[in-house]
Design a binder for these strands. Structure first.
Length: 666
DNA sequence: TTAGGGTTAG
């Protein structure tokens, strides 16, 4: 931070000095200007500075301004201040071009004190009402003291233009007051409609997005259309983002498809929009299309598409994109590296993720969070807790999401006391933190404590909390409490079919068929659509999908034969007895079906007959795996001597040598 | 010679 004291310098003295050297300036200005301009354009700062050192005292302000501009453009803000000081010391008079630049430099270097001194200079020199000076001052005070401070300067200024109006609107957005930003834009329209330009439209569109107001956004879209600015790339990209922020991917796509020219930002915005809204395959498709149209992806586009690979466990695509980042030099970007770690973790390759994490030159809070969550996902909660301890020791910034991650890790590792102590550190816990604490206590079987915790924090009427409690009931087969929880869930989410199915399955387990019949009728009458269970397995670049009792696969006969033979081995060699209790299961159809017809069993069997001995099988299920399949998968891993990695919505199960990484707590 | 703006990761 530059702390420069100018008060000792006399502006009056500078004025006199300049008068004295007026003749010399005229004689020497031209050759010096040329020298500075050519060096500045080449961006060679050291050369520029050498030239600057050679400038005689009599040189005019233009050369100094050019030098200042070069350093400002290169982000050398402190240096700009030093040059300004030298300029004053040499008696050169700052002008209306110098002052906004040094004000900007002092704002960007965080030297508000210095900025205030320069404000004094602008008044003494009579540039207080220059438009560029006013906007620089507005931005400085606005960012430091808030929008109200900028507003005072703005209201006092006699000549307002599109830049000052837009700046004012932008400051309101920073303060999360999008309504005021939109109001400012409309005031500008009313008072000086000819001023509206692409940047003004872009700013107000961002405010509409923040407000999630499709109505306001469409009004601005109409204004852009009328002023023929709709297809300006900045405006189009802002419209795209506004529609995405307002949740209308359809309108965003319409803007994208109609754009005359698309840049890397347009492509990144739309593909990121799809990925964030669950359109993982469409996101990947757009990424490929972008490449084929000759738009080179940058760190932003790569970080936007990698979560799609993570979510659909598309290791192959993820690896290809990873290779692309290495070839194109974007792999050292921290956001890209974080997205890569997340992708590898979520597609089952925790080792590849760890390698990147270890090699990272710089790690931020997000990098650590991804690793802690990743370890929890793979049943290595203890490693996650250790990482959190390390992170604290290294004084890395801890935020709410890191606490979510470490509480997840404590859950996985069943480290109740550690979880309790970390929870105490959270200043303002959110419902996610409370739910994780309830889950931690419930999974450990501490139901009385979980109840007291819920009462103490008055969080009973949150579906997340009830679901967390249900997880504990499942593990400990606490049917009595589970019934109460599910009944509460049906009150909280009357349109969620899953809750009625859980209830129905619990009554079925107790042979209360009349209640089961009533619940099924209720589901039908309310026209609720329960989820169906599916499992995917990728064999030689082709994805095979299996439903419950599926016989549609061309190798179906062989798949069932393999399963029958495995079942025989499990019964004879491992003493396996299928569990008929589906009381805690989320789908109805699987209870009706014999366990070997469950989708994950079919996928495992197909994987075994389609790959070489010893190959690891990787499968993904859209719903939670049932107890029978979990036990079967453990035994199969031992019988066939293979690792089976099964991903369900909450975690990875690594079945190996007859045991699972989740230690049967899922 | 100068200002205000649009895309990323947990």
């Amino acid at each position: 931070m530059a702390v420069v004291v100018f008060q000792s310098l006399s502006i009056q003295c500078c004025l006199q000095t300049q008068q004295q050297h007026k003749t010399e300036i005229h004689q020497q200005r031209r050759p010096l200007n040329l020298q500075i301009s050519s060096s500045s354009k080449s961006g060679e700062l050291s050369t520029t500075h050498k030239v600057f050192d050679e400038i005689p005292h009599s040189v005019d302000t233009f050369a100094w301004n050019t030098l200042i501009q070069t350093h400002l453009g290169n982000g050398a803000h402190d240096h700009v201040i030093s040059i300004y000081r030298t300029m004053l010391l040499r008696g050169v008079h700052p002008d209306k071009h110098t002052l906004p630049r040094v004000l900007t430099a002092s704002r960007l270097s965080g030297s508000f004190f210095c900025g205030k001194q320069i404000h004094g200079h602008t008044l003494k020199l009579g540039f207080g009402s220059d438009q560029y000076v006013v906007t620089a001052l507005m931005e400085m005070y606005g960012r430091h003291d808030g929008a109200a401070a900028a507003r005072r300067l703005f209201d006092q200024s006699s000549r307002k233009n599109s830049v000052s109006w837009t700046l004012m609107a932008g400051l309101y957005i920073i303060e999360d007051k999008p309504n005021l930003a939109i109001e400012t834009f409309h005031q500008m329209l009313k008072l000086g409609a000819e001023n509206v330009d692409a940047v003004a439209l872009s700013t107000v569109l961002s405010a509409c997005g923040r407000l999630k107001s499709l109505q306001e956004g469409k009004k601005v879209h109409e204004i852009a259309r009328k002023r023929e600015l709709e297809f300006d790339v900045l405006v189009s990209n802002s419209l795209l983002k506004m529609y995405l922020d307002c949740g209308s991917i359809k309108d965003a796509r319409l803007v994208f498809d109609r754009m005359h020219s698309k840049d890397v930002i347009s492509w990144t915005a739309i593909l990121s929009g799809y990925v964030k809204n669950g359109g993982f395959n469409e996101g990947l498709k757009l990424f490929r299309l972008m490449n084929s149209e000759g738009i080179k992806p940058d760190s932003f586009s790569v970080s936007s598409v990698l979560p799609a690979c993570a979510r659909i466990s598309a290791r192959k695509h993820g690896r290809e994109i990873h290779a692309y980042t290495l070839r194109n030099g974007v792999d050292s970007n921290i956001a890209v590296q974080n997205a890569q770690i997340d992708m590898y973790m979520k597609s089952g390759c925790s080792e590849s993720a760890s390698k990147i994490f270890v090699r990272m030159r710089e790690k931020d809070t997000i990098s650590w969070t991804i690793m802690i969550l990743g370890y929890s996902l793979h049943g290595q909660g203890r490693l996650g807790v250790e990482l959190f301890q390390k992170m604290m020791n290294m004084r890395v910034r801890i935020d709410d999401t890191v606490y979510v991650a470490v509480l997840c890790a404590c859950n996985t590792a069943r480290m109740v006391e550690e979880g309790k102590s970390y929870f105490k550190f959270i200043r303002a816990p959110k419902i996610e933190h409370y739910s994780l604490m309830v889950s931690l206590l419930g999974r450990a079987g501490h139901f009385d404590e979980a109840r007291s915790f819920i009462d103490e924090h008055q969080i009973e009427w949150h579906k997340e909390v009830q679901r967390a409690l249900l997880a504990g009931c499942r593990i400990h087969r606490n049917t009595k409490m589970a019934k109460r929880v599910i009944e509460r869930l049906t009150e909280l989410e009357p349109l969620n079919a899953e809750n009625y199915l859980l209830l129905s399955n619990m009554y079925a387990a107790n042979a209360k068929w009349d209640v089961v019949k009533n619940l099924r009728e209720l589901i039908r009458d309310m026209d609720l659509r329960p989820k169906k269970a599916y499992t995917w397995i990728e064999i030689r670049n082709k994805v095979h999908v299996f439903g419950v009792g599926d016989v549609s696969h061309p190798r179906s006969e062989r798949i069932y034969y393999e399963l029958q033979s495995l079942m025989k081995k499990m019964k004879e060699g491992e003493g396996y007895i299928p569990d008929r209790d589906f009381g805690f299961h989320d789908v109805d159809e699987e209870r009706e079906c014999i366990p070997i017809g469950h989708s994950e069993m079919l996928a495992i069997s197909f994987g075994l007959i389609s790959t070489q001995v010893g190959t690891t099988l990787r499968i993904t299920k859209n719903l939670r795996v049932c107890h029978n399949c979990h036990s079967s998968a453990k035994m199969i891993s031992k019988i066939v001597g293979r690792e089976i990695i099964l991903k369900d919505p909450d975690r990875f199960h690594h079945f190996k040598d007859g045991i699972c990484s989740c230690e049967d707590f899922w």
